[in-house]
């Protein structure tokens, strides 16, 4: 089997296993997995920019929030049906990421990171400032009746799971295909050595711009899906905390791997969930786990497996 075929089989297997798990897992864990899959889409969006293109952003919460608020405001104030509202959410993210990408890519390295952070902070404050519409920090609930798509009630446990799985699989397979394409390889070239990529005739600025936009739109889609599936829109999702999360997930799971983001979210989620059985100080355990992982598995979980055992891992 070629590398590509192996990768295709692997991703198909992951999707099938996740589908089968729904019938096996107790209700509580199935619910968690739905949430994890949506957040994994956010992490995959982040990974596209950070893991493949090598741009470290601390402002992705603004994309996630743009999708979420675009969706939520369109439903609650625009009275739109959920499907159209999701598209509005994605369109809102597209606009935000085009503008932000245009401005922020004038900078590089740490300055890029900080500019993204500043833009995200502005976004958060804007949500608070227009509290009349957004209900500020409190946020608002999207009522069960407004959360139907193609006649399905997305607030129902089972349908929610399948919707999350469909979104997750589409993104996973799309990215798996994309990273093997010319475009994907060009992005990696930018990450590895931007100067050389430029010499080879790539328009590196354009590539980076496309990466920001794609990454932003994926993050925004995750945000809109989160609002749709879980029914809550809130400014917490626009805070710095939610810009740091995808970075952690991706680094823990393995930057620049297709499955790393999912594994990272899964790991972090259950780390906190399980340790909260043991102690109130679950952040303490999370902190120690982060230290240990970065000391002993610096490439992230999937990255480490690839480096030591399975070199073909996508």
């Amino acid at each position: 089997m070629t590398r590509e075929q192996k990768s295709l089989w692997l991703h198909a297997a992951v999707v099938l296993v996740l589908g089968a798990l729904y019938f096996v897992l107790p209700e509580y864990h199935a619910g968690n997995l739905a949430r994890i899959m949506v957040l994994a889409v956010y992490a995959m969006g982040y990974n596209l920019l950070f893991g493949y293109t090598g741009l470290l952003s601390l402002g992705h919460a603004m994309f996630f929030a743009a999708g979420m608020y675009g969706f939520g405001l369109a439903v609650n104030h625009g009275g739109l049906p959920a499907g159209a509202a999701v598209l509005i959410g994605i369109a809102a993210t597209l606009v935000v990421s085009v503008v932000v990408g245009f401005l922020a890519l004038r900078t590089r390295d740490v300055a890029f990171m900080i500019v993204m952070l500043m833009f995200a902070q502005t976004g958060y404050l804007i949500i608070l400032y227009f509290g009349e519409f957004t209900r500020g920090d409190e946020g608002f609930v999207v009522q069960q009746a407004q959360r139907g798509l193609f006649g399905f009630d997305l607030s129902a446990q089972g349908i929610r799971y399948w919707a999350a799985l469909i979104l997750f699989s589409a993104c996973l397979l799309g990215i798996a295909k994309g990273v093997n394409s010319r475009f994907g390889k060009a992005l990696v070239a930018v990450r590895e050595n931007e100067e050389r990529a430029r010499m080879l005739g790539y328009d590196t600025h354009r590539l980076k711009f496309l990466a920001v936009v794609l990454s932003g739109v994926l993050s925004g889609a995750a945000g809109a899906a989160y609002g749709l599936l879980f029914g809550y829109i809130g400014s917490t999702f626009a805070t710095v905390q939610y810009s740091i999360f995808p970075l952690l997930w991706v680094l823990l799971g393995g930057a620049g791997t297709t499955l790393g983001p999912f594994v990272g979210v899964l790991f972090m989620f259950y780390l906190i969930d399980l340790s909260s059985f043991l102690t109130d100080a679950y952040m303490f355990i999370a902190g120690i786990a982060l230290l240990l992982l970065t000391m002993f598995a610096p490439k992230g979980i999937v990255g480490q497996i690839r480096a030591s055992r399975v070199p073909w891992l996508p």
């Binding site: 680094l251 952040m283 902190g287 982060l290």
Partner: peptide, 22 residues
């Protein structure tokens, strides 16, 4: 121990942040 690698340092100091805060 992690050789001041830029990205690993970010994760390690986030871990430190959680520990100190808690």
């Amino acid at each position: 121990r992690i050789g001041y690698d830029p990205e690993r340092t970010i994760v390690a100091t986030i871990g430190l942040l959680y520990i100190l805060q808690q």
